[in-house]
Write a protein that binds this DNA or RNA. Sequence first.
DNA 1: GTCTTCAGTTAACGGTGTTAAATTGAGTGT
DNA 2: ACACTCAATTTAACACCGTTAACTGAAGAC
Lengths: 197, 197
Amino acid sequence: MEIIERKPRSREQTRSGIVKTAKSIARREGWQAVSIRKIADAIEYSAPIVYEYFDSKDVLLDEIRNEGFRHLYQEYDRILKLYRDPEKRLYEISVVQWEFARQQPEIYQVMYNLAGAYCTMPVCRSEMMQAVSDIVCQTLFSFIPKSKESIKRLYFQWWALSHGMITLAMLLKDEQPVEQSEQIYCETMRRFVRQLS
Amino acid sequence: MEIIERKPRSREQTRSGIVKTAKSIARREGWQAVSIRKIADAIEYSAPIVYEYFDSKDVLLDEIRNEGFRHLYQEYDRILKLYRDPEKRLYEISVVQWEFARQQPEIYQVMYNLAGAYCTMPVCRSEMMQAVSDIVCQTLFSFIPKSKESIKRLYFQWWALSHGMITLAMLLKDEQPVEQSEQIYCETMRRFVRQLS
DNA sequence: GTCTTCAGTTAACGGTGTTAAATTGAGTGT
DNA sequence: ACACTCAATTTAACACCGTTAACTGAAGAC
């Protein structure tokens, strides 16, 4: 009767289909609901096929995490090319970080193992994360040229402030409207940036 | 042959045994390795017994989470009774928060759904968490009596800064020694507190 | 002795990540 | 036309998970 159920797809298409499906399930139902079988169903294959593209679920999550850091890296890079003023640069980077977490929360979650997402690979081993760190440190340096150690401290503080507000805003979004959190975020990051001068 | 394998225990002993076992597995192997069967094995019962004490794994995690917030509440309360100076109060509260996360990371993780821990119950619905929020807000108010809205903003900033540094320190502990993170934490929190005056 | 009660067990259901084995089917040599 | 090969894909299995229903066995009541 039926000729071909499944549309023929290239390897690349199938691969990105797996990634896309994983993200969409995570967005709708949370990362703890993402399973290999569910992904396989969605892409109209059986479960073992997924293993032809990713050695394990862990590797799949790691890929999505790195995709997230790469996206962030590209955005930061764009900002560095767009603005010369260090103050403007760091503030815009902060805003981009917020918008990324807001628009793609499921990716932000897997990047930091939040909300039940769990990827075994240590975050700090990710090359893309290192690149992101470097680009922010570079911005901080163009701001106030200090010792490497000082820059690292400053970076840790900036990162913690931004990451802390983002994760808390996610956690409290039922109590405290996101718009309000966003306002506090922007104001706080602005003040952090200003105080650096 | 064998008379009684398992030592007789009271209901309370068994219950706290379940909680203790869950925490100890989480500490050793991470929350994703905590299973009802493993807990049951450790307390020398079969799995369904656990359900006589906790309706679900979720409820068990929620209990541990609330235990964490209660512990924090008691510590904060102790500090409020110990010091009168608001600056000292808030700083000591910050330090206690750090020490708690350092000494009982597995509890801190389940409180905020970090590192693969996943408890469905929304954090902000926890009564103990509300009590913790109130006590810090109270401290902030004794600091600078301002509008409720202002205090809430200040609290969000303090919380985000502290929580952000704690989670990042956990994440980066292989790269950045904990002692170093602790030093930056203390310095940053001290500055935050001072700047409030 | 039988009956009830109850703590505790086993067994099961539907799910998970993962892997080995079986199956399908199309292309090729003769 | 038939057999053979080879790759793609699926089925079946393993050991685990949370959870629940059904069962067991012993103690106490009558």
